[in-house]
Write a protein that binds this DNA or RNA. Structure first.
Lengths: 340, 340
DNA sequence: AGATTTCACTAAAGCGCTTTAGGAGAATAT
DNA sequence: ATATTCTCCTAAAGCGCTTTAGTGAAATCT
């Protein structure tokens, strides 16, 4: 028999109490008797009462779910979802995950939907650096945290890894390994310079008295691994006798490696490769990519943290968090002395 | 100025109509005038009205969000999320994704939460094959589709790949490539035999007059890649002169390959390896694992399909869908003649 | 012309919960 | 003894939408 759901009304009836008394007991209000509270809680446990989240959210005008809007769930940020989910669960929050597939229209739809579901917050890795539309539709209604280096507008909340520090760590490890002719492979001119990776590279190259050797892949729509592959080939054809290369994205780094090994260049014996992101695949034994990994749990915690603070106080000042990434050394890089 | 949200009441006031008229206009009811409908729709567009999803769901007693409860989001089913999300969006559905981390308590919490949010449906890759608890809490309240081969109880809905067909395709390709001494690596005794993979293997081995060479890794809590690694070593130590191996999970296959290459056995020249699942990583150039890939889009469509049908009609009979997987040949397998 | 049907709309209850204002009774103060 | 404060509870409005029952006017039928 499909007994019908037990609501607050059921509890109230059973105990001869008013609805408000039950509500107060369940929500730890101050003006409720200790005895009554016990009674209500007992009955609730007995009847297996669980609050209807929808009704509660509607009445409270804010739900307990946060929207996660990603350009591509099969990216680092998708992999960060696991951490995000765990942190969220600890705070009894629910995550609604959207993959916008890099489509601004879809992105807008997702954001609107989240607003209409009275989401408690939105974390988003936006399609474009132009976030005016997102700001427009979320305007004051719901706190937003931008994820990843795409947005570093100080008037909004954002969490990303400190790419300057990460880049420096990667390059320093190469330089300390004796490398001098170090190339850099970037995805897009804009994002690499905005995040500071490019600037750090330029500075460090000039510090060791080397020219900057930068390879740009500016075709946004290309598969990252394939983009990396093309740049790997260009790098080989450049004629520069490069001994190491720093790639701004792991996926592209895999493409670079592919191009190198295909041309008979051994990694890391002839050329060391370091990526950036710390994707799961980098850790596979047959991949074993040295990479600058982002501290996922830390970032996830910070995201939820900021969201909660801004949910409590709509006028809280914008917050920014730069997580310190960690260089994870694997088999794709080594000292320059490996060279024959 | 943070103008306050425009609701149906706003529209009604502006147009001098009743709330119900507005609702009917927006929801395509039959008993509403064509003119009025136009007026309402026009005003709605003008004021940028969007319905409050929470209120709607509460009133309708069913929401437009489906819960996706996965044992591990970084598995094949996590990778299927992208497809699921796309199909869902086409039907204006929202996906709430949970990672249970293989914990039954967490799983229960997730399911309960979905019920309390009046989810329109739940798709779940359950922690355990004992789904009594799940059935108990969802009992009639919400349609559930089980994902993956763990559950094949005909009294519930499930969608998974036809592992018998997949296994047959993999083994046939090996046999046609001239292989005879073919081993099989399984994760757990139960799941491999329940899904039929083991039976097919046994049958096909006997058909070519070969003994079954099965390696079980029964430690459930082990990292799949490491589990595969161990079985790979056992396989080498077995002394059997094996030329090919079929592994029931891609992640384990990667471990097997790792063990083989580490021992100086070349893949596929000396031993061919075929996995099962079709995870993204299998397609990476440096991995290039031959695998039995599940048709994600097709399965996603079927899942949503079943859910929708059962949401409309609570008494619809249970449905089962076996998707035909496809053998994707890559560099980890080849004909036996490669052997020196 | 009167009875019946159809059309297009409104009123009002309800979904399950929160929250504000207020009230009865007991405890303390004057 | 009355006035004041607490304490614990209730009543009722409200969140934004859906949906059933009902109503007056126009259209159709006999």
């Amino acid at each position: 028999m499909p007994r019908q759901p037990v609501t607050m009304r059921t509890l109230a009836k059973e105990l001869g109490l008013s609805l408000s008394a039950v509500s107060k007991a369940l929500n730890d209000y101050p003006d409720i008797g200790t005895e009554t509270k016990k009674l209500v809680l007992g009955k609730a446990a007995e009847l297996g009462y669980t609050p209807n989240i929808l009704a509660r959210s509607l009445a409270r005008k804010s739900s307990s779910s946060v929207g996660v809007v990603l350009r591509d769930v099969s990216s680092v940020y998708g992999e960060m979802y696991k951490s995000l989910n765990e942190v969220a669960r600890r705070h009894a929050l629910h995550l609604i995950l959207y993959d916008t597939n890099n489509d601004r229209a879809v992105e807008k739809w997702c954001v609107q939907n989240l607003i209409d579901s009275m989401a408690m917050g939105i974390v988003i890795s936006p399609v474009s650096e132009d976030i005016s539309e997102i700001r427009e539709s979320t305007r004051g209604r719901v706190p937003v945290v931008f994820l990843g280096g795409k947005v570093t507008d100080d008037s909004v909340n954002y969490v990303c890894s400190d790419s300057a520090a990460g880049t420096e760590a990667a390059l320093r490890s190469l330089i300390e390994g004796g490398h001098r002719r170090i190339a850099m492979v970037c995805d897009s001119k804009k994002s690499s310079s905005r995040s500071g990776k490019l600037a750090v590279y330029r500075r460090m190259m000039s510090e060791i008295g080397q020219p900057a050797r930068v390879f740009f892949s500016d075709d946004a729509d290309m598969d990252a691994i394939w983009a990396g592959y093309l740049e790997g080939r260009r790098l080989l054809e450049s004629g520069d006798d490069i001994t190491a290369v720093f790639v701004v994205k792991d996926m592209m780094a895999l493409g670079v490696i592919q191009a190198l090994t295909e041309a008979g260049t051994r990694v890391p014996e002839q050329i060391s490769v370091i990526g950036y992101d710390g994707i799961d695949a980098a850790g596979l034994p047959m991949v074993s990519l040295t990479t600058v990994a982002q501290p996922r749990m830390e970032m996830a915690e910070k995201v939820i943290d900021i969201l909660r603070r801004h949910a409590d106080d709509a006028d809280a000042p914008p917050e920014h968090y730069l997580a310190l990434p960690e260089l994870v050394k694997r088999k794709s890089s080594g000292p320059a002395s490996l060279r024959i």
